[in-house]
Nucleic acid binder design. Structure first.
Length: 562
DNA sequence: GCCGTTTTCGGCCCGACTGTTTTCAGTCG
């Protein structure tokens, strides 16, 4: 669609709005008629017909037409940065360019500069963009686990520059999206020229744009590195700028519409009156949301999925905070082959964090490389009992991370499993079974009387390995039915269960647990990602069992195995 | 493509930068 009319086209936005309507819809879309589909917010007659056609035939005629009109080689051209739909259409009609190879030849033959509106500079820029395609194509995305450390390092370096009051990671990274196209950092400084002069010191390559407030850096060695866009604003503009650069685009559009309804306009500098230009709010995000009659909306919820309406109605769940967590229920020690901190170190770290309860959960014996035998498990249990006496305010549960076999079988035997205080069960193998078997496998584990929680539900590694394919609704129903909790795994490469799964659980009585799955004491701080990921899935704090006071939590944990 | 008591057409969020212009179109975020 973008090829035909440009990404800003209203038709593109209409399709995006329709997508949000589909996502927000509760219940089975398949059962709806065209008329019923068209009644959904954002979906009109045309899109309703396409959806119905897809359910009935498995195809969409219009989509197939577009694919014929824009074959893959041509679509590839649209990935080149700086080459938009209008120029592309001209290149096709006037020079017959149908592929990246065609374009390269046309540039070498100096044909582009002959077209009105294009020149030598454009030719050179496109040539350079083609060279970097693959490294920096428009659709290249980096897993959050790679991007976040880079972003935090650059932001810290910028924050340390003179005359800088804030340097904040914004963009999709702040919203905790699983993959990001680039890194956006907003810097507050009254001396932008100083920042621009020094910015070269924090990255390998820098392009400062003409305005003197914007710089593009390339940082990190792997696969051509990451693009970091740095934007310097006046300190009093920080709030408006952070909203603007955090997005999402859909969220910002909705905010601006809201501003217009009040006779105001919102941009990256301020919320102000259209008539006269008086500034209403700009300094902090809270101020801007407040002026628009809204509570602060957590970045992780800013996806244009109805959060503004929910916030206005007071129906947005409170974002769970790290301070809400009273325990960590997925922790490894050196007993696991892949653990790097001793039992004593892990317990001491948990106590230092002020936790009231934790579960030590080393791998069950079925995990060949890293599993723990019965004998070693019993030995660990003895050490935990001894350690418990030194930590009267911290209840140490002896747990285990069980492996869910291809048919739902678990480690040891039921009697031995009943000896643990807490059982996490998780998939570590057989990722390629058909969905029906994966679903049955997960549900079988949930029905096991010793299993408290399913760990990293899909087993995915973001950007590296897809998770298992299973029936989300059936698994969530089983979670609500059995009382077996679902883990919110805080590790950035996992963030599992996925946010879409968490959102799907909204209408069900599913219990969650935010865990770090730490293999080293330095990883207990991962809770900061876990709480943000839970927020992204709109999970209310009370649905998260490890926010509960110890008596309630321990009672609940013990109930499953009676 | 969607939407609507300003309803079946004409609106739809905002601004910066670039390259090519000499007032603007295209691209991007």
């Amino acid at each position: 669609m973008t090829l035909e009319e440009g990404p800003q086209s209203f038709r593109v936005r209409a399709y995006e709005n329709a997508l949000h309507g589909v996502r927000a819809h509760r219940g089975d879309l398949r059962a709806l008629s065209v008329k019923e589909l068209a009644a959904i917010e954002g979906i009109g007659k045309s899109t309703a017909q396409k959806i119905r056609e897809f359910f009935d035939t498995g195809r969409v005629t219009r989509l197939e037409e577009l694919r014929r009109k824009f074959p893959p080689a041509y679509v590839e051209l649209s990935r080149i940065p700086g080459l938009g739909p209008r120029t592309l259409a001209r290149l096709r009609s006037e020079l017959g360019i149908e592929s990246v190879a065609d374009l390269r030849r046309a540039i070498e033959a100096r044909q582009l500069r002959e077209l009105p509106g294009l020149g030598e500079k454009t030719e050179a820029n496109l040539a350079r963009a083609i060279e970097r395609l693959g490294l920096a194509g428009k659709h290249r995305r980096t897993p959050i686990a790679e991007a976040m450390p880079v972003a935090e390092r650059v932001a810290a370096a910028l924050a340390a520059l003179p005359d800088v009051s804030h340097a904040e990671v914004c963009g999709s990274l702040r919203r905790l999206r699983e993959t990001v196209a680039d890194i956006d950092i907003v810097v507050a400084s009254a001396a932008p020229q100083v920042v621009m002069e020094r910015v070269a010191g924090v990255a390998e390559a820098v392009e400062v744009e003409g305005g003197g407030r914007k710089a593009s850096l390339r940082v990190g060695g792997a696969a051509g590195g990451l693009q970091v866009d740095v934007r310097v604003v006046e300190p009093h503009q920080l709030g408006a700028a952070m909203i603007y650069f955090t997005g999402s685009r859909q969220h910002n559009i909705a905010l601006r519409q809201r501003a217009l309804e009040r006779g105001w306009t919102l941009n990256e500098y301020a919320l102000k009156e259209i008539a006269g230009g008086r500034v209403i709010a700009s300094r902090s995000e809270e101020e801007v949301y407040g002026a628009l009659g809204l509570p602060f909306i957590p970045p992780a919820m800013r996806e244009g999925q109805g959060e503004i309406e929910a916030a206005e109605a007071g129906a947005l769940p409170r974002a769970v905070a790290e301070e809400d967590l009273r325990g960590d229920l997925h922790l490894h020690t050196t007993y696991s082959g892949d653990g790097h901190s001793s039992l004593e170190e892990v317990v001491a770290e948990a106590a230092a964090r002020g936790y009231r309860y934790i579960a030590i959960t080393d791998h069950g014996e079925d995990l060949v490389m890293n599993g723990v035998s019965r004998e070693r498990m019993l030995e660990q249990r003895g050490r935990i009992a001894a350690l418990q006496e030194r930590y009267p305010d911290l209840r140490i549960l002896h747990g285990v991370e069980l492996n869910i076999g291809p048919d739902g079988g678990l480690d040891y035997d039921e009697e031995f499993r009943r000896g643990f205080d807490w059982c996490v069960a998780a998939v570590h193998s057989h990722f390629d079974l058909e969905p029906a078997r994966q679903t049955a496998r997960l549900i079988a584990a949930m029905r096991d009387p010793t299993v408290n929680v399913i760990g990293h539900l899909s087993g995915r590694r973001i950007g590296r390995r897809p998770g298992i394919d299973f029936d989300v609704d059936a698994v969530l129903d089983a979670a609500a039915d059995t009382g077996c909790a679902i883990e919110i795994n805080s590790a950035l490469p996992r963030l599992d269960a996925a946010a879409e799964v968490l959102l799907r659980a909204r209408d069900r009585a599913v219990t969650f647990v935010i865990s770090t799955d730490a293999h080293h004491i330095g990883e207990l701080t991962r809770t900061r990602w876990g709480v943000r990921h839970a927020t992204r899935g709109w999970v209310p704090p009370d649905a998260i069992a490890n926010t509960w006071p110890a008596p309630r939590f321990l009672e609940w944990a013990a109930t499953r195995r009676r």
